[in-house]
Design a protein around this nucleic acid. Structure first.
Lengths: 342, 342
DNA sequence: TTGTAAGCGTTATCAT
DNA sequence: ATGATAACGCTTACAA
């Protein structure tokens, strides 16, 4: 009597017993193996038995023999940034469609290395990681081959990223077109994160127009609301101030906006503010935030597709290309108000 | 020669070979089993061999024999709601500390049932689910025993929730104390979600003070920014309007605020707005949102702790108690401005 | 076409 | 104190 062997869970063996076939036959039928040549009548019996018993395959067991878990890891420095949350959604969707689970790892309280270690013991088939994680694990990545880095292009790894240079340039051009010449910027210190290209392109575009960005108007701050708020406060406390600032992302811009409104500085008439990413909140604050839209979900989706393709062996050899960004003009930018003394 | 059998990954067998012991001994040493009585010298050798080889145990294999995956599922209707994101963080933290992984499932594109099904095949040891998921899977939950429902108390399941009744009452008392008598509310239709208690307590507290909430000032809307925006627009378009509204959560309140500012209705002087949850954005919009703080992270953390306790067998039999909430007065509420004609 | 046998990398139950 | 040996539930040759 090989009926459910003491345990409660229904296994392929139970199905086999009920269908009157051997266990491997059940596996053959249910695994959807294309070259599984089983008689139509047996297949029928197996499927019926499986349904009647409510059979659910055990992915752990399958993973053990196939030497893969059909799960991928997503290592993100800070999921409370809505931009990355959208990346996660995009990746999750693609993964789910292909039968992969996603293990989400937030690095605010546990380092990327530790997460990667855990993911390895869980036998994840691959990992998608953001710039901050990517730089903190370095060489380990080379060993673990199936890694896709988002928003940080490099020929040392596979990547999916938006066109950061365009983002910076487009922002600069917008402010210049409005007539601004006194321009500042807020972003994290250059070494960190993948924001360098945005900032560099921004500064270059200004310079190309004969506008320089004095160092006292280039404020360093963490890429968060608090960081933006703090930086803008410092900027306002200075003797001279710009008529516009470009913030490295929308969170910073939201913070900068808050600081201005709190200090009674009118936006945009006294201070124009631009963000980058175009998160949902950009449309919800008042005045609405001018930003550069970055296709977060698409980035996540592509990263997942690229990763899964590699896992399936069909590695697409086309050269990677950055995803286009788009200026979104709203209410926090306008022409500068002429200074009284000018 | 039992050296790494063709594959690349280092197994306990490899470690055993190197340490000159049997494979089960390696397992005994490394699994941290308290009653593993191995000689100090062998233990030493095994640990050293494991480190030298960079051995990483295979959790899939372990899960197969232990009949558990050391992973839990988190089924959330909409992770882009910052409140639930904090719940996730709380749960994730606790889970990680105990060596459990978290499988995050967002129900916006895949239903809770499907997610639950997937989670089962992945052998998750338990699931934390939110109200909207809980009501959509019903009886399946009873079968799958290890489920904790958040924000939806019931004696049909284990739960962790905030004190929704207090939240509603506190909100009402605040508006009443400011002198409001013409009061409205915005929330999802009663059948859905776990917001019922908040709203009921709010209405009851008003009634206890002799204030009624006319049905045309009780607007139904999805619990999102868009929902709040739409509902407030409709409210403003009516002939008569309240001087204050209570929104079922902060997203709705953010939308309502946006609608008022867009329509030129001054907040709080012409319209007081209250939210609930106290998400980070409440402090970032201008004017800052008055809200009722709900301990989201703590809810997530407790849910995870409760779940893991059950999994470890030590089921805490204390009656569950709702977590306290706290009024947070900011800038969107003030005494009503007397109407011109009164 | 289907059943038999082997093995994935662990843990657990025995002997020794 | 340690080493065989047998699971765990599945997939995949290889026989029949």
């Amino acid at each position: 009597m090989a009926r459910s062997s003491g345990s409660n869970r229904i296994t392929a063996l139970d199905v086999a017993a009920r269908a009157g076939v051997s266990q491997p036959t059940v596996s053959l039928v249910l695994s959807g193996n294309p070259r599984a040549r089983v008689a139509a009548t047996t297949r029928e019996r197996v499927l019926e038995a499986a349904k009647e018993l409510g059979y659910e395959p055990n992915l752990l067991a399958r993973g053990l023999v196939l030497r893969r878990s059909y799960a991928i890891g997503l290592v993100i420095s800070d999921v409370s940034n809505p931009f990355y949350l959208d990346v996660v959604r995009g990746a999750e969707r693609v993964a789910a469609d292909k039968g992969y689970a996603v293990l989400l790892c937030d690095c605010r309280e546990i380092t990327a290395d530790v997460h990667l270690q855990t993911l390895r013991t869980r036998q994840v088939d691959g990992v998608i990681i953001d710039p901050s994680g990517a730089q903190s694990v370095s060489e380990t990545l080379l060993a673990e081959s199936n890694v896709i880095v988002i928003e940080e292009p490099s020929d040392r790894w596979l990547w999916v990223a938006s066109d950061a240079a365009s983002a910076g340039r487009v922002a600069a051009e917008h402010l210049l077109a409005l007539g601004h010449r006194l321009i500042g910027a807020i972003g994290p210190s250059a070494a960190a994160y993948g924001f360098r290209a945005r900032e560099r392109a921004f500064v270059q575009a200004l310079r190309a127009a004969g506008v320089s960005l004095p160092s006292e108007w280039l404020r360093r701050a963490p890429p968060t609301v608090g960081g933006g708020q703090h930086a803008m406060r410092a900027l306002l406390a200075q003797g001279s101030r710009p008529t516009a600032v470009f913030c490295i992302n929308d969170l910073v811009a939201l913070g900068a906006l808050k600081a201005c409104l709190t200090a009674g500085v009118k936006v945009p008439s006294e201070m124009s503010i631009m963000g980058c990413d175009d998160i949902e909140m950009a449309r919800i604050v008042t005045p609405e935030l001018t930003s550069v839209a970055v296709p977060a979900r698409e980035i996540g989706a592509r990263a997942a597709r690229l990763l899964l393709q590699r896992l399936e062996g069909k590695s697409d050899q086309r050269a990677p290309r950055p995803l286009p960004v788009r200026l979104v003009v709203r209410q926090t930018t306008s022409p500068p108000t002429p200074l009284p003394e000018s």
